[in-house]
Amino acid sequence: MATRPIFIVNLKDEKIITHNIHFKWHPGYSIAQKQKSISDLHNNAHQLGIENILEVSSKSPNKLGTFLSAFNLKSVTVKNNIEFSVESAFQGSKVFSQGGPFADLITKDSRSAKKDPRIRQSGELLCFKFFSFTFPLTPKTYFYDWLYINTLLKNEQLASEAVKFSAFTDIEFNPEKSVNCQAFSLALFVLLSKANKISSNSLPPNDFINICRNIYATSSSIVQDSQNYLSNNKNNNYQYQLKPSSCITMHESPPK
Rank of each mutant, 00 (worst) to 15 (best):
S160N: 14
F67Y: 10
N228D: 12
N43D: 11
A32R: 11
F131P: 04
T3V: 14
T3P: 03
I50K: 00
P139G: 09
Q157Y: 11
A183V: 05
P255D: 12
G99T: 04
A167E: 14
K234Q: 15
N10D: 15
K234P: 00
Q33G: 02
H22D: 13
L54E: 13
E176P: 03
T169Y: 05
S231G: 05
A2M: 09
P244E: 14
F184S: 09
L126S: 05
L11A: 12
Y240P: 03
N62P: 05
R4F: 08
G123I: 14
S246M: 07
A167F: 04
K34C: 05
E83Y: 00
F102Q: 11
E156A: 11
T141R: 02
F189M: 04
H26G: 00
D225H: 09
K194H: 01
S221F: 01
Q35M: 06
L137K: 13
I31F: 03
Y240F: 12
P136I: 05
A159W: 01
P244F: 01
F184H: 13
E252R: 04
T134H: 00
K140R: 15
S219V: 08
L41I: 11
K114M: 02
S110T: 12
H22N: 12
K154M: 15
E83N: 03
T18Y: 05
S220I: 15
A70M: 04
S85D: 08
K63E: 15
L54F: 05
I171L: 05
W25K: 02
K115G: 00
L125M: 04
